[in-house]
């Protein structure tokens, strides 16, 4: 059975289409990265899975339980690190964990959970005095209670220092080894790349890619990037490049006379030939292996800083 199944989910807020007919299946036992720039609709989809928001169209299930019609049954499988949460003002960290234990009918030891997420010493302090990073650890701890079948983590490393982010990664891997499915969203490719079996890329409410990291690389056709400096760059040249067989993308770089082309390995020479054929003088060129970063930018249409 799929851990998560999303069938044609759309969500409209007024005139804004936050999600556009998203279909997605996450298999049991995988670590699934949900990638996209801020505002792409990642949290909206998570909110629908949690029944914080109702989809305008479509439906979603968690281990077969419909997220809207039977939200409690769906959430029984979940450990959640949500987005935009706040801790309870007047409860201690330990009381938060105890609340999670009772809510999930679990029998975890609160001290052990606090230790696992690295805030054992602070368990008796009021959680409202915690730093952002400590609160993030606390809520992760609440998510881990009861050995959930599926961990839904929304931007899990936000607020954490690099050390904390590494610990988060370790916990994700531990949980996965235990048998839990992990679904986490991020706008940072690096994190996803490091742990995920598969990723989905969401852009402007649309799912633009679902694949393994390797699959995404392969789809770049060997992952070659040509950086070509020409004497004068014009839109016609870009069109010529894009029309060449084997070329995936061609876009101007910052300095006006340079163009970046991603293409299959075999097409490298063809690109140069095509330029020559169009009467363009190639001043300089070099090749790079396309990184996932480029790929991500390409998929999401973001610009480099």
């Amino acid at each position: 059975m799929a851990a998560i199944e999303v069938n044609g989910v759309s969500k409209r807020y007024g005139s804004l289409l936050a999600l556009d007919r998203v279909d997605l299946a996450v298999e049991e036992g995988e670590i699934f990265g949900f990638l996209g720039p801020n505002g792409a609709g990642k949290s909206t989809l998570l909110n629908i899975l949690l029944d914080f928001a109702k989809p305008t169209h479509g439906s979603a299930t968690i281990f077969g339980a419909d997220c809207q019609r039977n939200p409690v049954a769906a959430r029984e499988h979940l450990g959640v690190l949500p987005e935009g949460y706040a801790v309870y003002d007047r409860l201690t960290g330990r009381e938060h964990i105890e609340y999670a234990i009772r809510s999930k009918n679990a029998d975890d030891d609160p001290v052990e959970i606090l230790r696992r997420v690295g805030i054992r010493e602070d368990g008796d302090r009021k959680a409202s005095d915690y730093s952002k990073g400590m609160a993030q650890r606390l809520v992760l701890g609440m998510a881990l209670v009861g050995e959930p079948d599926l961990l839904l983590l929304d931007e899990p490393t936000s607020g954490l220092d690099p050390n904390g982010a590494a610990e988060m990664r370790r916990i994700i891997e531990e949980e996965n080894e235990r048998g839990a499915t992990i679904f986490f969203s991020s706008h940072i490719l690096e994190q996803v790349q490091a742990v995920c079996d598969r990723v989905a890329i969401l852009q402007g409410g649309e799912l633009v890619a679902v694949d393994t990291i390797q699959g995404l690389r392969d789809s770049l056709g060997g992952g070659t990037k040509l950086i070509i400096t020409v004497d004068e760059l014009s839109p016609a040249i870009l069109d010529t490049l894009r029309g060449t067989e084997g070329v995936e993308t061609a876009r101007p770089a910052e300095d006006e006379s340079t163009v970046e082309v991603t293409c299959t390995n075999d097409a490298k020479m063809d690109v140069l030939v095509a330029l020559h054929g169009a009467g363009v003088d190639v001043v300089n060129f070099r090749t790079e292996e396309a990184s996932l970063e480029d790929m991500f930018i390409e998929y999401t249409g973001g610009s480099r800083q």
Binding site: P71, V72, R75, P82, A86, H96, A100, S103
Partner: peptide, 14 residues
């Protein structure tokens, strides 16, 4: 408004 409700409603509470 603060967001603590998402903690409670992430649990199996209707």
């Amino acid at each position: 408004v603060s967001g603590s409700i998402v903690l409670s409603l992430s649990f199996p509470h209707s």
